[in-house]
C-alpha cells in the first residue's frame, strides 16, 4: 500500500512542478537552471543516512562520496544563483 502512496506523491509533484515553472520568463532561465541544480542536491538528505548510519565500510564510503557530490550542488548552486540574480537590475528612472 505504501508504494501506491509514493506513486501518488510522484504524480502530484510532477504536475505541481509543471504549473510552477511554466510562467518563468526567458530572462530567468539560466538562474532557474542553476537554482534547480541546487535543489537537486536534495540527494544530500538521502546520502546523510548512508554515510552516518552504522554500515559496512563500502556503504559508508559510497555514502560519503554522495554527500560530497550533493554538497557541491547545494552550496555551489545556491551561491552562484544568488550571485547571478544580484546582477539583474531594472532600468533606473532618472
Amino acid at each position: 500500500m505504501e508504494n501506491i502512496y509514493l506513486i501518488f506523491i510522484v504524480l502530484l509533484a510532477a504536475f505541481l512542478g509543471f504549473e510552477l515553472i511554466r510562467k518563468v520568463p526567458a530572462t530567468l532561465h539560466t538562474p532557474l537552471m542553476s537554482g534547480s541544480n541546487a535543489i537537486s542536491g536534495i540527494t544530500l538528505v538521502g546520502a546523510l543516512a548512508a554515510s552516518g548510519m552504522e554500515n559496512d565500510i563500502l556503504t559508508t564510503i559510497l555514502g560519503t562520496a554522495a554527500v560530497a557530490l550533493a554538497s557541491i550542488n547545494v552550496v555551489g548552486g545556491y551561491l552562484v544563483t544568488d550571485r547571478m540574480l544580484g546582477m539583474f537590475k531594472k532600468k533606473d528612472k532618472k
Binding site: A14, S40, V45, G46
Partner: peptide
C-alpha cells in the same frame, strides 16, 4: 534524485527531485 528517493523511501527526495525534473522538461 527522485528515483533515489523511491529506492530509499524518502518522500522529500521524491517530491523535490520531481520539481527539478519538471522544470528541466519545460525548459
Amino acid at each position: 534524485a527522485s528515483a533515489a528517493g523511491l529506492a530509499v523511501g524518502n518522500t522529500i527526495l521524491i517530491v523535490t527531485g520531481l520539481l527539478v525534473g519538471a522544470s528541466g522538461l519545460i525548459l
